[in-house]
Amino acid sequence: MAASRHADALRAAQMYYLQDLTMDAIARELRTSRSTVSRLLSAARDSGLVQVQIRNPLDTGPELEGMIRRRFNVDVHVVPVLETLNEAETLDRVAIQAARTIGPLVDSNAIIGVAWGSTLSAVSRHLTRKITHDSVIVQLNGAGNMHTTGITYASDIMRRFGSAYGARVEQFPVPAFFDHAATKTAMWNERSVQRILELQAKMSIAIFGVGSVNADYPSHVYAGGYLDEADLNILATSDVVGDVATVFFRSDGSSDGIILNERSTGPGLAQLRQVRRRICVVSGVSKINGLRGALAANLATDLILDEATARRLVDFESLAPRNG
């Protein structure tokens, strides 16, 4: 939004929402038309100048948020979604909330790590523009596989994030998985790759979804030709429940001994835990096992999820045995 239109939208919003003026009254004061005032109010909402909150006394979201916050020590946003919506529609609703949550957290001079995947692709389509300076969007993991370079898929996500925040985009042009761990070791010594790794090490925000082997809405890493049958068998025998940025973990959050991680180009879980703000976006109850594993691994500081998944998470935790 141009600076003059931004100022007009802010004035209109203040008069409408804070001073309770009608659109006709605002139009007279701004010496414009009622339709222009309507467009300014819409622009104020779309740009994040105005955020609408509805307090429903029957809403169980706040209760679920409190339970999840206390159990996992995360800031949580539960998105109310009708049970009649399918998984794709639910994902879209969660993505809208995620985009609105992420915007205020992004500041100038930030290095923001973004993982590619079905969830982040949806989120990237709903980002609202915010002016920042000297910010960087860095890709967290490679996207190539045996069938495609993955550049178009991943770069579209990174480009949308970069455009939304006026940030420089740094792609990671390596495969999602190397065929051999030794190849990864050699590539990690290349200066061009080290530059990206150094940016990742300085991240102030990491944004990611949770991949899940058995999700109804397939995670891209499992549906996009990244893993062959032998790889899937390895995951099964290693009791893997999910991944973040193509780094796999078990239901207890552990990742040691999972040999595919030695060939993965995503940041190790220990490195990810060093990032100050870690925003995890999850949609769909079929990802519950992956989500529980990610939370057990302490990978998230912020969690955005749909109401049905939140309820399932709380139900699981209420039945889980406690140590001691």
Rank of each mutant, 00 (worst) to 15 (best):
R277L: 05
I279C: 11
V244P: 06
G253C: 02
V281C: 12
P267E: 03
C280M: 15
R276S: 13
R278E: 00
G284E: 00
I259T: 14
T246R: 11
Q271D: 14
R277K: 14
V244H: 06
Q274C: 12
I279W: 08
G284T: 04
E262R: 10
A270F: 05
D256A: 15
V281L: 13
S254T: 15
V244W: 07
V281K: 13
L272V: 04
R273E: 04
G268E: 08
L260Q: 07
N261C: 09
G257F: 07
R250E: 01
G268F: 04
Q271H: 12
A270W: 05
F248D: 04
N261Q: 09
R278D: 02
R263V: 12
V281A: 12
L272F: 00
T265K: 10
G242H: 06
R263S: 07
G253T: 04
L272I: 04
V275A: 01
A245K: 08
R250M: 02
Q274F: 05
G253F: 01
V282S: 09
G266R: 11
G257Q: 11
D243M: 07
D252C: 08
V281I: 15
S255L: 03
L260M: 12
P267I: 04
R278S: 03
V275C: 02
F249Y: 15
V247L: 09
V247K: 12
S283E: 03
L269K: 09
E262K: 10
V281W: 07
S255Q: 09
F248E: 02
V281G: 11
S283P: 10
C280D: 01
G253Q: 06
Q271I: 07
S283R: 10
G284R: 10
S255V: 05
A270V: 15
E262H: 05
S251R: 15
R276K: 14
G268Y: 01
R276T: 13
V275P: 01
V244S: 08
I279Q: 10
F248Y: 15
A245L: 10
I258C: 07
T265Y: 05
R273P: 09
S254P: 06
